[in-house]
Design a protein around this nucleic acid. Structure first.
Lengths: 141, 141
DNA sequence: ATCATTGCAAACACTTTGCATACGC
DNA sequence: GCGTATGCAAAGTGTTTGCAATGAT
C-alpha cells in the first residue's frame, strides 16, 4: 500500500485531535480504511497489513478499531454476517448489500432519509439504512 | 406461558404450510416469538422454554430458528450486539433501538420508506431501517 | 422399519483479556 | 525511566456440527 505524504499528515492530525497517539499501526489501519472503502473486516485489515508489518497482531487490529470507533473516527457496521465491518466514511449515508456477491456499498440517502425526529414517542437520533438486492455488476452492468 | 388453543392451531397451520412438522418444541418457539415481541435472542428463548421442557436444548433452538428463518416464518435481525435477535413479525417495518436501555421496538415506516427500487445502478429488493435514540420510557413518558 | 427430530458434547469462529516485551516522550 | 502501545497466548462467547438416542408415521 503506497501512501501519499499528505494523506498521512491528515490522518495524524485527525488522530491527534481525537487524543490518539498516531503510531505506525494506527496510521496504517486508518489509511487502509480511508483508501479501501469496501467496509473491511478486522481479518481483512489484519491479513493485508501483516504484509507490511510482519509482527502485526490481530490484538492490535481489534484494540485499534475499538479505540477509533469509540473516538468517533470510524464506525462499526452491523450486518447479518458474523464478522463486524468497519468504515472511515463518517458522513451520513446508508448501505447497500448485494445478496449475490456480498459486496457492501455506500448509499446516498439524501432523498430518502426519513425526516421525523420522533416516532411512536421515541426520540430518534440516528437512522441506519441497509438496502439489499442485486448490485450493478451482478446484474451485468 | 399459557396458550390459547386457537393460536396454537394457527401456528401449526403456518408450520405445515411451510412444510415443517409442527413438533412441540417448534410450536413453543413460534408461540414465544409471536407472543413476546421483544425480539428475543436464542438464549432468551432457550432459558424461558427450558422451564417448560426440562430436556430442551440450545441445539434445538438454533436448529429451529435457522429452519424457520429459511422458510420465511421468522426473520433474524442484525444488530450491533453480539447475539442475533429474532422476530415473527413478517410485515414490512423498521426497528428502533434505545441506546440507553437497549430495548428494540418495531417501527411503522409507512411514511418514511424510500420508494426507489434502483439506487446507484443497484437493484433494491428490500430496505432495512434501524433507528436509534432514546425510547419513550427512558425519556420519562 | 424408516426417516426426521432432538439433544448432548465437542468443535468452531470471532473477539476479548492477561500479561510480558518493546517503544516513545 | 515511565507510561503507553504492541503482540502472543489463553480465555470467552455465541453458534454450528457430529452423532447417538428418541420419536413419529
Amino acid at each position: 500500500m503506497k501512501m501519499s505524504r499528505d494523506s498521512i499528515r491528515g490522518i495524524c492530525d485527525a488522530l491527534e485531535q481525537a487524543g490518539i497517539r498516531p503510531t505506525h499501526q494506527r496510521i496504517l489501519i486508518m489509511k487502509y480504511l480511508a483508501e479501501y472503502r469496501v467496509h473491511p473486516t478486522a481479518e481483512m485489515i489484519y491479513s493485508k497489513l501483516k504484509e507490511e508489518i510482519p509482527t502485526f497482531s490481530k490484538t492490535t487490529v481489534y484494540n485499534t478499531l475499538k479505540l477509533l470507533d469509540e473516538k468517533g473516527l470510524i464506525s462499526a457496521l452491523a450486518t447479518d454476517e458474523d464478522q463486524v465491518r468497519y468504515e472511515a466514511n463518517m458522513t451520513p449515508h446508508g448501505h447497500f448489500k448485494c445478496i449475490q456477491c456480498g459486496a457492501l456499498f455506500d448509499l446516498d440517502l439524501a432523498c430518502s432519509l426519513p425526516p421525523e425526529k420522533e416516532v411512536g414517542g421515541h426520540l430518534v437520533l440516528e437512522y441506519q439504512v441497509m438496502a439489499k438486492g442485486i448490485c450493478r455488476s451482478c446484474r451485468g452492468g
